[in-house]
Design a protein around this nucleic acid. Structure first.
Lengths: 226, 226, 226, 226
DNA sequence: AAATAATCGAGACGGTACGTCACGTCTTTGG
DNA sequence: CCAAAGACGTGACGTACCGTCTCGATTATTT
């Protein structure tokens, strides 16, 4: 369900002043007014994000045990540098997630050509993959960051399609484009109906029964098919 | 979405020794051997739960600002008394929720006889009701408690059908029993497909678009109808 | 000039609520209202004072390097415990000084019966004793604490005769009582005229010349007027 | 007791490389090899000193609140510029004092021709002048700088007669030269016996009683011996 | 009735992390 | 090549809570 990726998403702006939680007032006009003084260290910025990802994923540090001091120490970075760029621990975790240093993902979606077969297989795979101690811990950490008030700034939430840019949404959209799904289908809603009930059970009540899970797949499928 | 109820659920065991998170070693033989010494104060127990509910709901105290010390002070209770009954802040919040001192609910489900009409109306009502600052804060607090590892003990999770005992599930089950839904329908899964995507947006990314929301209703409905 | 004494002055009130820097509002009526809760730990109180004395005197830690965190760590005490009893580092150092855990003293005053001989001998001894690196460091630490605004609370300064209860003052008072000094002599002023110029040179400009020093003794003993 | 003077003492070397605390390695060959590049800004040097004087005296900033960063900001100077010229905050304060930007002085010494009358008057005036909140704060700041180890470099201490070049010493020396004091009188010691006990009470225990103060004057003037 | 025992509110204890501040250094742009 | 600006790693600050541990007081059961 989660993993550390060393290559962050390339489309993200490497300009430090534009990152999440940045409180730089001149973030907008960073181009024409190339700030005085020593420039912000991109290396430190990256070190924090990769450290957070490593601690949460590899070291299996719980979200509450993931302290700012520990992040700073393990990243070889000053505490103040973290506070200069991010507003809270949750903001750091979210940016690490959104920048692609961590992934929160379900099983890969097979492609046999038949969506029903693929989704049932995906559900079985996901149930196995995702209810392990590591994956649950990781998912809980991400969820704790997401739930924290003020973690993600307005702009970031507006511009990022976190729940929407997933393989599942893309596949559903493709099926719809190919004319195999109803015109009224909204891929993002369909996807959410599948993944979100799963996600909530991961982070709270635990693994659901198989009949529950496959009923969920059928619910979504039978409406989408022409 | 949330509210303080003064009358707690009567079916819960008032015996202190059986409370969630209780670490009393003599919980088993509490009946036949009514321990010596001063008995635990049920009044203090209740005071803690109602105080937590009041702070979270009425006073709109954030989950992170809801400290054990503050609960103890406002409930007029010693800190040790809280630790004697619960293992963590999350456990207190969860028991306050499960004992009915707080509710986490969507809009009421109307009953015109037509499920599609009712669900679309319910969705509209819920979107209005639930994306207020108060409701979002409350939902986030509950979610933070739910997500906390070790908050809910095994026994509690097994015996409580938190997500399942809702008006929506009951209505769907009734419709199915009345023969207006497919036999294969699993009401809990259907309900989850509706509520969980909503819940996640409440606590994280914010209010979704109307087309997304009503597409969610149609997704679930079209599969359930015969 | 300075030394660690393990036996603190016995006349000091062992009641924690009455110590320097105490912010307990009920310090006055401590008798009739015997504070609720766990009583303050006299052991921790003592540990802090002896640790400060040890660090400054034995370990030769400079005043600026003597951090609250280090005191707490070496005394095996929580930082908050220090802040609960004292208002600042300077207040701790001052109480350690006034409680007798550290002494700030010059050479012992010999007693041959002849005051002039004794004072000149004392001056020679003191010059040797006091301008060592250790003694200077210690004196500077004490002076830095004394000079810090708000270090000593009003009450403590009023009740403690820090500069006045010294062997030198006592000797001068005795000589005056024996009729060997003028009636108008104020022993405290006479002592200050001898010790304070020395003290200032210890902590700032360094060892004065011998002629200066002995001229100081003669100034006090003889009339400067022809 | 203290005041800001805009015109610094002219006799001090305006050459930056010769300033107190300067760690410039090229201080020696500054004359013959007038280094390449932009010359060091004497304006910045002066701005630092006058800013320190203003903050301590006019703004009544405490010594501990007088940070290098604040000095730099208020002087419109880079932090590095301060570190290039001085080794520490104490060194800056001391140079501001010695360069005449701040003064630490007692009441002016009247001259009626009679030393005893003048000194008693001076003592009365000083007691009034010096135990105000502003004067005490200022004196404490200066004392904290003086007491700081390493603040004044060896050379500065050797060449500056800080305690000795005062009106009081000059007056005593004049009286001695006029034959109205004993030959053995050391003016610096006599002055110290008067001023240093006062100074210590200013910065630590507070205003002494009048009898103490005037006894001090008499001690120095008359013999204590019968 | 007296003794025993467990819990009560209260609050200090040793800790840990917080978020801020200042340190002294380093690295940029600009005169 | 110096100046300002300001970010850097470092580390102490004073505060807030944590979960634990005494206190005296209270309330029950057991002698």
């Amino acid at each position: 369900m989660a993993g550390v990726t060393d290559h962050s998403i390339e489309t993200r702006d490497p300009d430090p002043a534009a990152c999440a939680g940045s409180s730089a007032p001149d973030a907008v006009d960073a181009e024409q007014a190339p700030r005085r003084g020593r420039p912000r260290s991109v290396a430190s910025h990256q070190a924090v994000l990769t450290t957070v990802a490593r601690l949460l994923d590899v070291e299996q540090v719980g979200y509450d045990s993931l302290t700012i001091e520990r992040i700073a120490a393990e990243a070889g970075v000053g505490k103040q540098t973290i506070y200069r760029w991010w507003s809270s621990k949750a903001a750091v975790v979210l940016e690490a997630l959104l920048a692609g240093h961590m992934r929160m993902e379900f099983a890969p979606l097979p492609d046999t050509g038949d969506l029903r077969t693929d989704l049932h297989q995906w559900m079985d795979d996901t149930l196995e993959l995702v209810f392990t101690e590591e994956a649950v811990g990781m998912a809980r950490s991400i969820m704790q960051a997401l739930v924290t008030p003020g973690a993600a700034d307005e702009e970031l939430l507006a511009t990022t399609r976190f729940w929407e840019d997933t393989p599942l949404v893309e596949r559903i959209a493709a099926e719809r484009a190919a004319g195999r799904l109803r015109e009224e289908t909204v891929p993002e809603a369909m996807s959410a109906a599948l993944t979100d009930p799963l996600l909530l059970r991961i982070v709270s009540t635990g693994r659901p029964g198989d009949s529950w899970a496959h009923s969920l797949v059928d619910t979504v499928l039978d409406s989408m098919l022409r």
